[in-house]
């Protein structure tokens, strides 16, 4: 466990936006080793604010508190085990539209300015350094973006239970999260149903299944085989805009936006097919290389 020699003082009141270029410039080896945090005042000067910065959802304290609490709560566990706990709660605390979440500057600011301690705790191997892309990187790599997006893409409407299933399996986070096929929600839910079944799936099986689903997606249009319901954009909008500071339960699963649930019939239609893919891969006796 790396030591934290510098405590971050004068915390910013709001979440900001820190462009990639300047973020990268401050990811020195000392920062990546966890020996320093990026210079607060400089980072503040180089950061901008969301257009509606005064909205409660941009308050920095709740998300910082949640991340610090995570490091405390899982102090005695492997940091990977914190993901399944943190992902739904991070999603509840960070009320973002997908358009906002697509901006890397937001995640840069969270990682470099709001809670670098969390990034180091979660990603720094003993005696090593954090990969820069965990601070500032693609959505499926960056320390906080990957968890938020996992919650966003794997939740079943308001239900975060599938998110817990997903984040309990690092192969799901590393492989499935970036597959294009799971952006169609019934595919994601069908896949997670197999992952979450008794006995679950091994990492190799997850990768094989994800690869098969992706490859079959070049000839099958899942959107036709298993149609999704239309997103309730109004409900999601309302949830994002609703008063911040709402209490995030730590011991029970929070509830997500009042979004439409994935049609069960569509998930049911895909599950046997995916089971077949899996059986097929087993027969072949080899797990293919993960799908890009």
């Amino acid at each position: 466990m790396p030591t934290r020699t510098t405590a971050t003082t004068d915390q910013p009141a709001h979440i900001g936006l820190l462009p990639d270029g300047v973020a990268r410039a401050h990811l020195t080896s000392a920062v990546l080793r966890g020996d320093e945090v990026p210079p607060a005042r400089t980072v503040d000067r180089l950061s901008t604010s969301p257009s509606d910065r005064a909205a409660p959802r941009w308050e920095a304290a709740p998300v910082r508190q949640l991340l610090l609490d995570t490091t405390g709560r899982f102090r005695d566990h492997r940091p990977t085990t914190a993901d399944r706990w943190l992902a739904p709660r991070l999603h509840t605390v960070l009320r973002l539209t997908r358009a906002e979440a697509a901006d890397p500057a937001l995640w840069n600011h969270l990682a470099l300015r709001i809670a670098p301690e969390y990034v180091v705790w979660r990603w720094c191997p003993a005696g090593g350094a954090v990969a820069a892309s965990r601070f500032s990187g693609p959505f499926h790599v960056q320390a906080l973006a990957r968890l938020w997006w996992a919650a966003e893409l794997f939740r079943d409407g308001p239900d975060y239970a599938p998110v817990v299933t997903a984040c309990a399996n690092q192969d799901v986070l590393n492989t499935v999260l970036r597959s294009q096929a799971i952006l169609h929600r019934p595919v994601a839910q069908a896949l997670l149903r197999l992952v979450g079944e008794d006995g679950g799936l091994t990492g190799r099986e997850v990768n094989a299944l994800s690869a098969a689903v992706g490859a079959a997606g070049s000839t099958l249009l899942y959107e036709v085989l298993a149609p999704d319901a239309e997103t309730d954009t109004e409900a999601v909008r309302a949830w994002i805009g609703s008063a911040h500071g709402s209490y995030v339960p730590y011991d029970t699963l929070p509830e997500g936006p009042d979004d439409v649930r994935v049609p069960q019939a569509s998930v049911d239609a895909l599950v046997p097919r995916f089971r077949g893919f899996l059986a097929d891969a087993e027969v072949r006796g080899r797990a293919p290389v993960p799908a890009p």
């Binding site: 094989a208 690869a211 490859a215 079959a216 000839t219 099958l220 097929d280 891969a281 072949r284 080899r286």
Partner: peptide
């Protein structure tokens, strides 16, 4: 080699 197919060839491109 069908044993190396990640999925049956009939569903592949």
């Amino acid at each position: 080699d069908p044993t190396s197919h990640p999925i049956e060839a009939a569903l592949s491109v």
